[in-house]
């Protein structure tokens, strides 16, 4: 916690109020139902993670990322910023890549989640995982789960064929070790097998 007195909800409330007021000056902004200083409750949800369905009681303040890491014991998904700025926490929700730090677990009742732990099939690396090893597409490996989840989802996205298209489509995933040229090479090699 960086500045006492502020938490995510009070910020969201202020931001929502400001946004609404600016866009619709004549319409009264409804008071939020929850007072900012009251801790949130928990709620029961069902998540299907890497093919296994699990019933969970989640703190409604918990992000999907923290739920995976701290509650479900799946630490493969990483936290680099907790602000949607780095991509380390990328997972697939119903087949699409998202930043799991930017979404609450409670919003995903019934959703299908795939994490880095779910890509290999019976110990056999997925083509993207194998390509990352072959092309040395990482150094420290911390951004790697997010990079691989992004790259895997990208195979299904309408992304152009030039190197610059791929670089752009991978630019939500920061790699401070600078493995970018090798990440590009890994993705290209998998894409060429695909088509």
């Amino acid at each position: 916690m960086d500045s006492p007195g502020w938490n995510r909800r009070s910020f969201l409330k202020a931001a929502a109020a400001a946004g609404a007021a600016a866009a619709m000056p004549d319409i009264a902004v409804p008071e939020p139902q929850v007072k900012p200083d009251v801790p949130a409750s928990s709620q029961s949800i069902r998540l299907k993670v890497n093919g296994t369905s699990r019933q969970l009681n989640v703190d409604t303040r918990a992000t999907l990322l923290d739920t995976l890491r701290e509650q479900m014991g799946m630490a493969g998904t990483k936290k680099g910023c907790d602000h949607g700025q780095c991509g380390a926490c990328t997972v697939h929700v119903n087949g699409r890549r998202i930043n799991s730090c930017l979404t609450f677990a409670v919003m995903h009742d019934g959703d299908e989640i795939t994490t880095i732990e779910g890509l290999a099939d019976a110990g056999q690396l997925s083509p993207m995982q194998a390509a990352f090893v072959e092309h040395d597409a990482f150094q420290c490996g911390y951004c790697t789960p997010g990079q691989i989840m992004s790259a895997t989802a990208l195979l299904r996205e309408p992304v152009g064929n030039t190197d610059d298209d791929l670089r752009e489509a991978m630019s939500g995933n920061i790699c401070r070790c600078g493995a970018y040229p090798n990440i590009l090479a890994a993705i290209k090699s998998v894409r060429s097998q695909h088509s």
Partner: peptide
């Protein structure tokens, strides 16, 4: 190839907060 490559691409490599 990196000796720890498979651990890193499968999410099994344990960083400080992962243990």
């Amino acid at each position: 190839p990196r000796h720890d490559g498979t651990l890193k691409v499968t999410g099994q490599a344990r960083y400080a907060a992962d243990h």
